[in-house]
């Protein structure tokens, strides 16, 4: 059912953004629905009956292929979630059990008693949200300017920014730590917010936004200028609203990256109340440093499932956002 919506939006956005795309013939979205929806009943008229049956068989075979391919993707997550219900000795068994022999929620209770987990959840969440909003803003502005405004040195500055795409974080962690330390910002969340928004992690976002704006037809903006809007006006009132889909893609990329950031928090943060989730997960250990797997996996499950749920709900928007973000060109 949802696929109808998709087909519609697709053609809709295409006709706005559709640089080089041929004009939609009338009824194309409807055509999409039939291709999309019922597999058998509404097959294209021109194919014969035999072809149709063959086609149906092929489709079910493809579904089978997908199902088999899913196993290595799903099993680890499944194992993680179910193991959080097992006692330690069962988790470590060599041949993993598919379902806990005696499921228990005990580990989930301990997640919250051993550490300020709720506080840590909040830390991760608010940092990721601030980083996401900040990155969207910075990337939209820079992407727009690099794509649209011809100012001296634009190319040189763009190349300078692109360098950030090429620097692995292990390379710069020591000098960055020195910079943060000299500013007295160790054990604060500032380096986890400011550096991703302005530094290397933001570069991919700038790149995506620039590509998007390059692919956006200029007519609407020109109309806006004729209506008396200045550059900023055009940017805020026309360009940003049109780039919702690309911004959506940037948002998801950025959120995931911040949510999963590991090396940086470990290096910058030192008190438990300030920890973020990936770092907090490593703290569920017994008295001798051995991991309490069930508690760790319970905490991990708590950090993964909400994000997966959001993806499940938002994935169509996400895919379309990318489809029209100019990443294709």
């Amino acid at each position: 059912m949802k696929s109808d919506v998709k087909a519609d939006t697709t053609s809709d956005v295409l006709s706005v953004a559709g640089r080089g795309a041929p004009a939609e013939p009338p009824g194309a979205p409807g055509d999409g629905v039939t291709r999309d929806g019922e597999t058998g009943g509404a097959a294209p008229r021109r194919r014969g009956l035999g072809a149709r049956a063959r086609g149906r068989l092929t489709r079910w075979l493809l579904v089978l292929v997908l199902a088999v391919l899913s196993v290595p993707f799903v099993f680890p997550t499944w194992w993680m979630a179910t193991s959080s219900l097992k006692p330690m000795s069962e988790i470590l068994r060599r041949v993993p059990t598919i379902w806990p022999q005696d499921p228990s929620l005990e580990a989930y209770g301990r997640v919250f008693t051993l550490q300020p987990f709720a506080q840590q959840y909040w830390n991760s969440l608010y940092i990721a949200v601030l980083v996401t909003i900040g990155t969207m803003l910075v990337a939209a502005m820079a992407g727009y300017a690099f794509a649209r405004i011809r100012f001296p040195g634009a190319n040189a500055l763009f190349v300078l920014v692109l360098v950030g795409l090429l620097v692995p974080s292990e390379v710069t962690i020591v000098p960055l730590f020195r910079i943060v330390n000299s500013l007295g910002l160790i054990n604060t969340h500032w380096p986890l917010i400011v550096i991703p928004v302005l530094g290397a992690p933001a570069v991919l976002a700038v790149f995506i936004m620039r590509q998007f704006f390059l692919g956006l037809p200029t007519e609407l903006e020109e109309a806006g200028r004729i209506d008396g809007l200045g550059r900023w006006g055009v940017f805020w009132r026309i360009a940003v609203p049109l780039s919702r889909s690309a911004l959506g893609a940037v948002a998801i990329f950025t959120f995931l990256k911040s949510w999963n950031l590991y090396l940086e928090p470990v290096v910058y943060l030192s008190s438990k109340e300030n920890f973020t989730l990936p770092q907090a997960l490593t703290q569920y250990v017994d008295a001798y440093g051995g991991p309490m797997w069930n508690v760790q996996l319970a905490a991990t499950t708590l950090t993964v499932l909400p994000v997966l749920a959001v993806f499940l709900v938002a994935q169509k928007q996400f895919v379309q956002g990318l489809a029209h973000s100019g990443l294709k060109g």
Binding site: R178, I179, S182, L183, G184, L185, I186, N187, E273, N274
Partner: peptide, 23 residues
């Protein structure tokens, strides 16, 4: 609220680029 600067060090006031040389 979680952005406490570390109490034992006063937050540096120098600009990033300025301190960089000393780093």
């Amino acid at each position: 609220s979680a952005l406490h600067p570390r109490t034992r060090r006063t937050a540096g006031t120098a600009a990033v680029l300025g301190t960089a040389l000393a780093l």
